[in-house]
């Protein structure tokens, strides 16, 4: 347990050193979306009977927390390729599961903090939100999935450039296409089925339903839990294989 806490503590200490910079960087993208779609033309649009700004806020929360959880992969890569501290951690008597769990929890903290930043911005923009248990569960599962995926990708890539490519090909399309800005029912059927398989689609659906007090898609929550469990197990195996 102390070892797992050591991994989290390390990430928290590093984060603390650049706290102000990080918080501002968490704000930039959500702030731009809120200005553009909120003040810009949000008041003139409705989606499924909901003002557009209220519709996209859950999507922005899902996207921001996903991006920041996944940003863990960059932090691990800096440790691996630049500071070489990953070797130091691997030399310590810490099990692969404890190391993975420690990193994943660190990523979850980052992701949840990003979500809190968006919610504070929502208050500033006077967008009403109601936080409940289902929202918290959705947020935790979202950050769990993408932190686990971050651990996997950070071990698979060989350079920083490859990490950047993964962000471009994996995270950016998901951020825009998975029901964050418009309902996936607008897609042609086969595209919709494809998008339905991606985890962020289910995060957007659960976060939106929880925050807008709509009928909650429990299947999506289950899908996220199963998806999260699978990627976490793969992450532990990938960490083990990093030794060869």
């Amino acid at each position: 347990m102390a070892q797992l806490l050591a991994i989290i503590f390390r990430e928290v200490l590093i984060f603390k050193r650049k706290f102000v910079k990080q918080i501002f960087s968490f704000m930039v993208s959500p702030l731009l979306f809120l200005i553009t779609f909120g003040w810009g033309f949000g008041n003139e649009m409705n989606v499924d009977g909901v003002p557009y700004i209220n519709f996209i806020l859950p999507g922005i929360i899902a996207m921001a927390s996903m991006r920041q959880s996944f940003a863990l992969s960059s932090e691990i890569n800096i440790s691996r390729f630049y500071w070489k501290t990953f070797d130091e951690i691997q030399s310590a008597p810490i099990s692969n599961i404890s190391y993975t769990a420690g990193e994943v929890i660190s990523g979850m903290l980052r992701g949840c903090l990003a979500a809190v930043v968006v919610m504070i911005l929502a208050l500033i923009f006077q967008i009403g939100i109601s936080i409940n248990g289902l929202f918290v569960a959705s947020l935790l599962l979202n950050t769990f999935i993408f932190s686990s995926m971050a651990v996997i990708t950070s071990m698979v890539v060989k350079t920083h450039a490859e990490q950047g490519m993964l962000n471009n090909f994996l995270i950016t399309p998901m951020a825009f296409l998975c029901g964050t800005f418009f309902p996936i029912q607008h897609y042609p059927l086969w595209v919709g089925k494809l998008i339905f398989c991606l985890p962020l689609t289910h995060v957007s659906a659960t976060v939106r339903a929880a925050l807008l007090n709509q009928k909650f898609p429990y299947f999506s929550l289950l899908y996220m839990a199963v998806f999260g469990a699978v990627v976490f197990i793969v992450a532990v195996k990938v960490i083990r294989n990093a030794k060869n």
Partner: peptide, 20 residues
Amino acid sequence: NLDPELTGYENLLIHGLLFN
């Protein structure tokens, strides 16, 4: 292979915790 953003003591602290 040290964490440059951390202090010397924090580097040792993390290492000690990793060794339980």
